[in-house]
Design a protein around this nucleic acid. Structure first.
Ligand code: SF4
Ligand code: SF4
Lengths: 143, 143
DNA sequence: TTTTTTTAAGACAAAAAATTCCGATATTAG
DNA sequence: CTAATATCGGAATTTTTTGTCTTAAAAAAA
């Protein structure tokens, strides 16, 4: 298997992107969200719970309850969602898993990967939900 | 978890890189290789078996048996090892896992990732074991 | 207040990935 | 030939990840 983010993380990104195109303040139930992104409801629900813990989204119980963004889409960077789910070591760990890794003793692919990793991290750290608004909207509508 | 290659694939890369710095034709046992890369012997052994199936390395049974490169390090591209273990869909699948993915209907991160993915694939497709010789040697010696 | 709806929390189950075990077979040395 | 050493192939086990269920608690409506 070759994967960049865990399933949880993928679904977290999808869910939050979905929330980000709804009118500001909209509360959407886990049920609706899961239907939209075509993923198991209970699983999505669980993932969203952990995003509320880090204040990316907020939840409301009871009738007409659900989840909504906790802040402005401009304030939510993609990397925030990723680290919330997959941890902060995200771009620290290595593609090669070579033992004894350090700057003085880099593994054969270090130099080659370092650039790509840095670019990826950069991309995820600069882009916010707001930046993806248009294309997210187009995508969601067509699913 | 955030991972690019599976554990198997990482160990495959490490094992083959190790073989590539040994004098041409050297036969090394799974036991030695696993010690060198500090990984479970039986697991390494299993992984090496599947690499023999695709003629990246060859094996020899019996006393003084083991594994050795099946061809010149110049002929073995990194991507060959990766596809042998993780399959050819390696860079086809997506970071986002958005449903309904297609060129006309790309997901929000498509454009941003496409470039990075292409660069990664390019890097893995152009580099051979021979290209990494010097740094691999330095790395292995220091582990 | 009672009912309905929805999240919260945690145990539980299933699936996938990683790792080990074992019996068979091949190879070489003595 | 026999003993020793390795890979081979497949089953079995363990661990991690993914996904489900069940019960409780909160909120709104009746
Ligand atoms: S040296 Fe670089 S490429 Fe190698 S294991 Fe460490 S971080 Fe990864
Ligand atoms: S559109 Fe691009 S980024 Fe999105 S799921 Fe498809 S390949 Fe991945």
């Amino acid at each position: 298997m070759t994967v960049l983010f865990s399933k949880k993380c993928e679904l977290a990104l999808q869910s939050v992107l979905y929330l980000s195109i709804l009118p500001k303040g909209t509360i959407e139930s886990a049920d609706n969200i899961s239907k939209q992104i075509k993923a198991p409801r209970e699983f999505v629900s669980k993932i969203l719970q952990s995003l509320t813990d880090v204040d990316i989204i907020k939840s409301k119980k009871g009738k007409f309850g659900g989840f909504s963004l906790a802040k402005d889409p401009k304030e939510i960077k993609l990397i925030d969602i990723i680290t919330a789910i997959d941890g902060d070591y995200v771009f620290d760990s290595c593609v090669m898993g070579f033992p004894g890794c350090s700057d003085e003793n880099p593994c054969p692919m270090h130099e080659k990967w370092a650039k790509l990793r840095e670019e990826s991290l950069q991309m995820l750290s600069t882009n916010t939900l707001a930046d993806l608004y248009e294309i997210t909207k187009r995508k969601i509508e067509k699913i």
